[in-house]
Design a protein around this nucleic acid. Structure first.
Lengths: 238, 238
DNA sequence: ATTTTTATTGACTGATTGGGCGGTTCTCAC
DNA sequence: GTGAGAACCGCCCAATCAGTCAATAAAAAT
């Protein structure tokens, strides 16, 4: 049985009976408890369900769609690298820092890592990041920037409109950067390969880059020329 | 029985009968007094209830609802009524309407109902509502109002701080209302019993009230005197 | 077709949590 | 006051959970 199908079935079950236990599911799927728990954690992380000790129950109130969205899966790609980068980056900021966090799957991982620390003041344009940090019981202050919420499933939009939205996002990010004292970029090695990362921020304005592998030679040269501190996240390290 | 469910049930009981004793609960749940006391202490710390010697009673200061933070549970109670109201209310607005939707468990149900229609422009202060409407594939435009995101699980907050937050929310709602051309209030019959609903909006400014039962005689008089149109939602109807 | 990268899984570890037990201290009613 | 019951405290055990590891399966790249 494919993992995606399994998670789908879990959602279906929860939709019907509202509550399941880990053991129950483990038996049903013939999988280990660990696997089941991982599924549940993953679904919980996206607000589809709500875990409790020993199982999970439906969290339908949110109106979150019942199946995994494309964004969910995207989020889980290169998860270990992202987590490593995110944790490493979270360590870079002292407690009670004030920071701006942009939208993105890597920054969501970052927000999760950050939520375990205390007393951060975070301004963000991502409702999801705001949710993660405000639900953590570690006394953060979270400010959500208002604006139009981009539709995840707006199928009818043409390429044109999508490009416009992308453009708007870019400008928003640029505006944030204008205000920032110091910029830290988070990017995994794959993203670093493409030049797109630095369309938003000029290299010269970036103070730090957190990534998971040593960048290629030319990139390294450019980085050191611009005075960017490269922070390497070891995937094994906390 | 799961701890979370147990605590939920305690809240439900207190909502009904207003007062419980430790022994009573211990018997009901088949748990030890210790466990019950721990539950009560925890709920007290959240400001949901107030402990006294041998038991606890509902801590309802002034108009502060019993369950301000246990949103998911609150969402589940009176679900059918809320859904009926929400669906009925959604029918009141023509397509391509522009509206402002405040936070709240009833309005979330409303947003869900609304998401099935098309082309609405919605301004809201609730990230959850924004999420619901933006994920629907029915071409809505959603604008999220920025601001501090209230912590859901900030355990350290006492009843005092919670009351303050409630106050802030009230003021925000008032400001929205200032700007509105026409106000529609959604409230189930239980809420209508309490005067708190109209602390925020003067009756005179309300154009419509959508509810599930005919209000009591005095309330009815006040409503018609203020020229409020009462819309009744039949629970069986779509 | 083969090699490399990525994703998934089950097992293992230490850390948390839920719940119970018993003794001491505190409350309240008499 | 005084005593019975209740709250509080530290300690216990069992179950669960988060995190890490290596092995495998799947997918992508060459």
């Amino acid at each position: 049985m494919k993992p995606a199908a399994r998670r789908d079935e879990i959602l279906g079950l929860l939709d019907e009976i509202g509550e399941v236990t880990v053991d129950e599911l483990a038996v049903r799927f013939g999988a280990s408890r660990e696997t089941v728990r991982r599924d549940l954690s993953r679904l919980d992380a996206f607000g589809h369900i709500r875990k409790f000790h020993g199982g999970a129950r439906a969290a339908r109130p949110n109106g979150v769609p019942l199946r995994e969205t494309a964004f969910d899966t995207r989020m889980n790609e290169r998860r270990t690298e992202k987590n490593a980068i995110a944790r490493r980056a979270a360590d870079l900021f002292p407690e009670n820092s004030v920071m701006f966090i942009d939208t993105g799957s890597t920054t969501i991982a970052f927000a999760q890592a950050l939520s375990k620390r205390r007393g951060m003041t975070v301004i963000t344009n991502s409702p999801q990041i705001a949710g993660i940090l405000s639900q953590a019981k570690t006394n953060h202050h979270v400010y959500l920037v208002g604006g139009e919420v981009a539709a995840e499933g707006r199928e009818t939009l043409g390429a044109m409109a999508i490009a416009q939205i992308a453009q708007f996002k870019t400008e928003m990010a640029r505006a944030m950067i204008e205000q920032a004292q110091s910029i830290t970029v988070l990017a995994d090695h794959q993203k670093l390969g493409r030049p797109a990362v630095f369309q938003v921020a000029e290299l010269a304005k970036v103070a730090r880059l957190v990534t998971d592998r040593q960048p290629g030679p030319e990139m390294s040269d450019a980085l050191s020329a611009a005075g960017v501190e490269v922070v390497l996240a070891d995937q094994g390290q906390s």
